[in-house]
Write a protein that binds this DNA or RNA. Structure first.
Lengths: 199, 199
DNA sequence: TTGACTTGCGACCGATCGGTCGCTATAATG
DNA sequence: CATTATAGCGACCGATCGGTCGCAAGTCAA
């Protein structure tokens, strides 16, 4: 039960920190939401700050495992429509997975207070997606699906607008469907603009 | 002195809220930073929350005055280089103006807690810049400086990456110079991709 | 000059915060 | 079976929080 309780505490912390922020979360409510007494929590973490640090460790490790390794790169689509499909699948996942949504919200809220949150936020919101798509676009250029250009610049130009709409979903979840449609429209616009003339 | 003190309190609140968040800011420190006793503050605001609301009122009014009206639209540049110049001037201002930087940070931090902050955040981070550039791009298309296309889509594709780099400056100010260079590079890339062949 | 109003101050208040302590029930270990 | 470690609990602690109160100094109109 020990390991389980520790994980449940971290889950509740993610939930509350991502909603109210670190300073705006109090431990009584956090533990109460688990049906746990406040003092019981201190069996598993020695302070509120240690919860925060453990949560960040977890997020950093998860990010590294999921997006950090070179083997995890997405396959190069063999049609331009394939790029759109892949994009929409990724977006659909990242916008609806509760854990990832809460992670982004937490990083958004705490990025100015904690250095590790700051650098992880930059990965999540700026460099991560772009680095993922750079080799994709390079491969699509090799296959003649996209015009020759700087693949890193294309990846930035492609992922930044998508990232902006994902963050709109985090902020105003009721606009999620509309945002996903706008992402699809942008993606189609993008392949039309950057696509080679044939096909 | 009354009006002045009230404004100074709002200034200090913007500074502290944007750094530590609403929940993470305490009134003793806030007033102490002004050389003011805590109880004196309550002569001007009846609660901490009223400071918050007044600050939001101010930000909403400022935004409406500065970016909301149709007369404040930027002029349509008459060369593609003019677009880059205009962009860099705007970016330079928005990235170095302390008040605007703090406003963005505050909206970033509090967007999930307060509905008015939420909607103002969407304007600042998504729709505002795009709406500003839509008529610019429409005008440039009329002048034959850009290929005919949906000006709103172009504005979104142009402003979202720029906005992402502006937010990088907010998050990691030491990268400001690099970010501005990347904005210039992106802007040049953009006019190359969307520009008409002549000129 | 006087009386009302404004703006400042420090002492104080109840509530809530993160955190501790002693106790108990349970489960694993010998 | 006895022992020991684990994980739960409520009571409690000092510190800090937002907010109040009574008082004093300055301002300004009558």
């Amino acid at each position: 039960m020990a390991k389980d309780t520790k994980a449940r505490i971290l889950g509740a912390a993610l939930e509350m920190f991502s909603q109210y922020g670190y300073a705006g979360t109090n431990i009584r409510e956090l533990t109460a939401s688990l049906g746990l007494g406040k003092s019981s929590m201190y069996r598993h973490f020695e302070s509120k700050e240690e919860i925060w640090n453990a949560l960040l460790d977890e997020m950093i490790a998860y990010y590294a495992a999921r997006f950090g390794s070179a083997e995890r790169l997405p396959p190069v689509p063999d049609t331009r429509e394939g790029l759109i499909d892949m994009t929409l699948r990724m977006v659909d996942f990242t916008v609806h997975d509760a854990r990832i949504v809460m992670t982004r919200k937490l990083l958004t809220i705490e990025q100015f207070r904690d250095d590790r949150a700051r650098s992880l936020a930059t990965k999540h919101f700026l460099t991560g997606l772009a680095e993922m798509f750079t080799p994709v676009f390079a491969g699509m250029m090799d296959r003649g699906l996209l015009r020759r250009d700087d693949p890193a610049m294309l990846a930035f130009a492609y992922t930044a607008p998508i990232s902006a709409l994902i963050r709109l979903c985090d902020r105003e979840p009721e606009k999620t469907d509309d945002a996903v449609r706008r992402i699809e429209a942008f993606s189609r616009h993008f392949v039309r603009v950057y696509g080679t003339e044939r096909d």
